[in-house]
Design a protein around this nucleic acid. Structure first.
Lengths: 143, 143
DNA sequence: AGTTAAATAGAAATCACTTCTATTTGACGA
DNA sequence: TCGTCAAATAGAAGTGATTTCTATTTAACT
């Protein structure tokens, strides 16, 4: 359980029941979820919400760095609420959708490469690892 | 100009005029292109092709590792035919869509991290840098 | 040249996602 | 505590990139 209020205020977003409900649903698990999955879970938890609202709130949270977008081969966007606040990246399990942190310090190297070789400006970067987590690997999970 | 025939045969794909035309269009520039842009260029170059065919061929080539998918904030997928064959990643310019190679050897570190900490199986990873290339930075290109 | 599985065109469908507008509500000051 | 108002939301409708489908064509290999 986290300080959702402070989190929302930090983004200058009003504290509303929908935002709170979405954060609660996302914090309840450590897997990435589709907007529709989140929408269903929020509904089951007793908060009525429209699907467009879920999309909007997720993008607000992603823009504020509170949730991470997870890329998927099926072209859908998924989202993950990461409790870890420092800069890092994610390993996502293609079978059970669990997300695990990957602490790899490539920020420096990237900055250097772009500065020296490309001589451009680096705005952002995406690093995402895909595979099977330990449990799914051991039970021979599907790819 | 490259050995498109050998490239297609390597993927066990028939050598057809559409596939050849798409590869030629993609090899002609060093920017990432949308399926529709490719479709238009192929048409202008004198080869009639259906848009669904372009989508299909691009995915065939991407699956075979011949072209790289470029992720974009607008949720469209773009494609880039990279002449560099070794394992590497890309810096994409958000203004002019130019793609530049980034030779960062994080393969080893990734393998280690996943093997030791996650104890899972690593299938693939995505690394993409976004920013402005030198020219666009100097002329103050749009983000 | 004949055969066949692969490739393609073009129309139609899909569906994740966005937009729009009227209504509601949280935040803040009186 | 209450009034005000910009922000937030619902729900319907729209959008458009991408996919599917089926009949037809074609490259590859006899």
């Amino acid at each position: 359980m986290q300080d959702f209020e402070g989190l929302l205020r930090g983004l200058k977003l009003k504290v509303t029941p929908r935002r709170r409900a979405i954060l609660e649903v996302m914090a309840a698990g450590s897997t990435f979820l589709s907007p529709e999955e989140i929408w269903k879970k929020v509904g089951e938890a007793g908060t009525n919400v429209g699907l467009p609202t879920v999309y909007r709130i997720l993008e607000e949270l992603a823009g504020g760095g509170v949730v991470t977008r997870v890329l998927h081969d099926n072209r859908q966007l998924y989202y993950y609420l990461c409790p870890n606040k420092g800069h890092h990246h994610h390993f996502v399990c293609l079978s059970c959708h669990k997300v695990e942190d990957v602490d790899l310090c490539l920020g420096e190297a990237l900055e250097q490469e772009v500065k020296l070789r490309i001589q451009g400006a680096l705005f952002s970067h995406i690093l995402q690892l895909q595979g099977l987590c330990r449990e799914c690997r051991e039970k021979g999970g599907k790819a």
